[in-house]
Amino acid sequence: MKNAAVASLLVIFAIPLLIAVAELPPFGDPDAPIHTHISARYIEQGVEEAGAENLVTGVLLNYRGFDTFGEVTVIFTALAAALAVLLTSGGVQYFQEDRPPAPPKGADESERPPTPVSPVVLFVVRLLAPFIGIFAAFVILHGHVTPGGGFQGGAILGAMFIVLTIVLGAGKVRPRLPEPLARWLQGAAPLSFVLIGALGVAFTGFYLGFPPEHSLHLVRELMMVVLEIGIGVGGAAIFARIFLAMEAD
């Protein structure tokens, strides 16, 4: 009886939704409003209106800034939840019983010191890490002109931290990212959105509203750069912390 009621309720809700979907223009139809009005507007006036040479960034942070705000909040909440699970279990436990027993190779096997890091790898990573960092900063800061942006640059910066952790060991990298600082940094993305959103309220009266005046081109660009830096730093911090939480000393 109850199941039947739920099923009929679902059907009643589904019918108007299905009718609405049927009313939508067919996928890929060149006469659909999205192709005749929205895309055309973005392509023709996007660079001028959004203040970003890179149209993708313009749409992502300016036209669809509110959607990106929601997306960033969801992603970073999920990452923070994953990190919380990792941290409360006291780091990841080893499943020792599942590992195959080490092949017996003589009595001195157990007394062998841990493998030192290869000097070649150490040298190359030390040589390349600053360049990776510079590239990440370029991708983040130049995201409104060339392909790239906060998400990509943040992943590259996080990858730099991961490489350094693998080669130098977690003990050397962990002090560089102290707990209280990292806690704020991993919230940098939503916080930067809140900051820029408040600025938008001051400028236009709308949350995340970018000032439309032609003379304020630089302000729009700066607001976008702040958002990109927030996303990039937050992403890098949270990737690095997740990896550090999984890595034993």
């Binding site: 092949p103 290869s118 190359v124 040589l127 390349l128």
Partner: peptide
């Protein structure tokens, strides 16, 4: 130049890790 640096290094690291684990 990057490929010239990174590719031999990764090869070296792989071979070294394999050798160290016996």
């Amino acid at each position: 130049a990057l490929v010239l640096l990174s590719s031999p290094t990764s090869g070296h690291a792989l071979a070294r890790a394999a050798h160290r684990t016996g």
